[in-house]
Structures are given as C-alpha cells and as structure tokens.
Amino acid sequence: MERKPNLVLSVLQNKCPRCRHGKLYEDANPYHLKKFMKMNEHCPACGQPSEPETGFYFGTGYVSYALSVALSVSTFVAWWVLLGFSLYDNRIFWWLGVNAVLLIVLQPVLMRLSRSIWLAFFVYYDQNWRQDRILKV
C-alpha cells in the first residue's frame, strides 16, 4: 500500500486534495498573469472536479485575508526584532511600504494558495482514488 502524501506539502504545491498527485493549475508559474488562476477542470490524476459547484471559490476571500494578515504580522514581528520601532524616526512607515510591496508581489501566490486551502477543506484524501478512477472510466 502506498504511503499517504503529506497534506501540507500537497496544499503548498497546489496538488489535488483527493489524490495529492494531480496539479490544480494548468500553468505552474503563478506569475504568468494572463492565466495564473486558470485551473484544470478535473484533476489529471484522479478526475476530481476542481470546482465542485458554481461559486465554490467565493469563500477563498476569507482564506486570502487570513494569509495576508499572517504575512503582515510576521513581517511586523521580524521588522521589530531586527530593526525595531521608535517614536523618533519613520521606521514604521518604511515597514508599511515594504509590507505593502511584499503583499502586492506575493498576491498571485496567495490567491492560488487560498484556493488550494479552500478546496482541501471540503475534498478529503481518498486512498482508493486509483480504483475509483478506473471504475469511472
């Protein structure tokens, strides 16, 4: 029997949550901005639909918001530990600028990751996905 793939790694690699092998997105590069959110209709490995129902991904806004807040808090703590903040200079404004640029640059990655996390909330790993794939075909 095959070992169960790691959930966190499959989510971070944008893999199908049912089989954890097939790719969710047609293009692996999130910075091809014309098609960075284009998903395969079905998982190439197990056939799981990438959009189980119409409007399924509306909830990803909450996940994306949580990821953005977590990133902002972590950059704030890192800035505070490494450079510190003071009332007598403008280091906090530098952090705000750096954080804003970082959020803008990482937005395609965060959007893809939020979709992958959202799908993994509702579609669970199926250890018999190979047999189910054969039966469907």
Rank of each mutant, 00 (worst) to 15 (best):
L106I: 12
K4H: 05
S50C: 09
V105G: 02
V8I: 15
L82S: 11
G22Y: 00
G84V: 10
K23T: 06
K34P: 03
A45Q: 13
L7V: 15
V101I: 15
D89T: 12
R130L: 15
M39I: 06
P5I: 14
H42P: 05
C16E: 04
V11Q: 05
S116Q: 01
A45W: 08
K23R: 15
S114I: 10
W80A: 14
Q127H: 08
N99I: 02
H32Q: 11
K15R: 04
I117H: 04
L102H: 00
N90W: 11
L102C: 14
V69L: 02
S10Y: 11
L119Q: 00
L9G: 13
A66M: 04
W79A: 13
H32N: 12
P49K: 10
N6F: 03
V137Q: 07
E2T: 12
G22D: 09
K15F: 03
K34N: 09
K38M: 07
G55R: 10
R3Q: 09
E41P: 12
R115M: 00
K35I: 05
C19N: 01
L113K: 04
M111C: 04
A70K: 09
G61D: 01
L24K: 00
D89Y: 02
N128C: 06
L71V: 15
L106R: 00
G61A: 08
W79Q: 08
F58H: 15
N99T: 07
R115A: 06
D126W: 04
E53L: 10
G84C: 10
K15D: 00
P17M: 02
Q127A: 13
K4E: 02
L7C: 06
N6G: 09
N14T: 12
W129N: 13
W80Y: 12
R20Q: 09
D89P: 02
L110I: 14
H42I: 09
P30W: 03
Y125N: 05
G97Y: 07
C19A: 08
V137E: 09
E53G: 10
P44M: 07
W95Y: 12
I134P: 02
H21W: 01
W95N: 06
S64F: 06
R91D: 15
V63Q: 11
